[in-house]
Simulated scan of single mutants.
Amino acid sequence: MLDLLKQLINGLQVGSIYALVALGYTMVYGIVKLINFAHGDIIMVGSYVCLMAIPILSAAGLPLWLCAVGAALFCAILGVVIERVAYKPLRNSPRISALITAIGVSLLLQNVFMLLFTATPKPFPAIFTGGNVTLGGGFTVSFITLLTILVAVVLMVLLQLFIKRTKIGKGMRAVSEDAGAAQLMGISVNTTISVTFAIGSALAAVAAVLYSSAYPMIDPYMGSFLGIKAFVAAVLGGIGSIPGAMVGGLAMGVVESLTKAYISSQMADAVVFLILIVVLLVKPTGIMGKNIGEKV
Rank of each mutant, 00 (worst) to 15 (best):
D3F: 14
G11I: 09
S16D: 11
I17E: 02
L23H: 08
Y25F: 15
Y29C: 01
I31Y: 01
L34D: 04
L34Y: 06
I35L: 13
I35V: 15
F37Q: 00
H39W: 02
M44R: 09
Y48E: 01
A53T: 14
I54S: 06
I56D: 03
S58R: 15
L62S: 03
L64F: 08
C67I: 04
V69R: 01
G70A: 08
I77V: 15
G79I: 02
R95V: 14
V105R: 02
L107K: 00
Q110I: 10
M114L: 12
F117W: 13
G137I: 07
G137K: 08
V141N: 11
V151K: 03
V153K: 00
I163N: 02
I168C: 02
K170R: 13
K170Y: 05
A181I: 14
A182P: 11
A182E: 01
I187S: 07
T191Q: 10
T196Q: 05
A208S: 15
A208G: 11
V209Y: 10
L210Q: 03
S213C: 13
P220F: 07
F225R: 05
L236N: 06
G240P: 14
V247Y: 05
G248C: 04
S264P: 13
Q266D: 10
A268S: 15
I277S: 12
G286Q: 09
G286D: 09
I287V: 15
G289E: 00
N291S: 12
